[in-house]
Amino acid sequence: MNTKQLYTVIIFSENTVGLLNQITIIFTRRQLNIETLSVSPSAIRGVHKFTITTFAEKDMMDKVVKQIDKRVDILKAYYNTDEDLVHQEIALYKVSTGLFMKMNGVEELIRKYNARILEINEDCLVLEKSGHYAETQALFEELSHSIGVLQFIRSGRIAITKSKVERLSDMLSAMERKINM
């Protein structure tokens, strides 16, 4: 039977206005919640990369990704599960400087979570940690329990495939060959 699991949809597109809308419409029509979203220029000049995570059934994911891929300005869309990916999120935590100073085991905490301190002033300090969702969440919970967190923000997932195949660049070079033929 089909069961829902977390998929990472990776989309390469031309850098045109309104593309995010075109993509989210397709999720909305199928009643899929976007868990995380990250958009940035890709390694290829003029090509943008969207990384979207969502819980869905495989069959549904298949259909949704085909419908995204079909849009005129989309170069390539595909989906993966976590096993195929190296993925990461980044989180920032703002805590009270006074409470943090008084807390026992700061060094231990920093080492345990491999966290960094980005900013300190009299009132507050900002910690940064990158990792999987569970890892950034664990630090959040530990800080919440001990000294409280004033502000917390986590980025959308970014991901890179582990496989040897580079789908976009292969596709682009195949296209170039075709045009030059």
């Binding site: 309104g18 809308n21 075109q22 419409i25 029509r29």
Partner: peptide, 14 residues
């Protein structure tokens, strides 16, 4: 117009 027609067009451009 673009926002309204994106879901029902192959392409919409301003």
């Amino acid at each position: 117009v673009i926002g309204i027609t994106q879901p029902i067009t192959k392409w919409a451009y301003q």
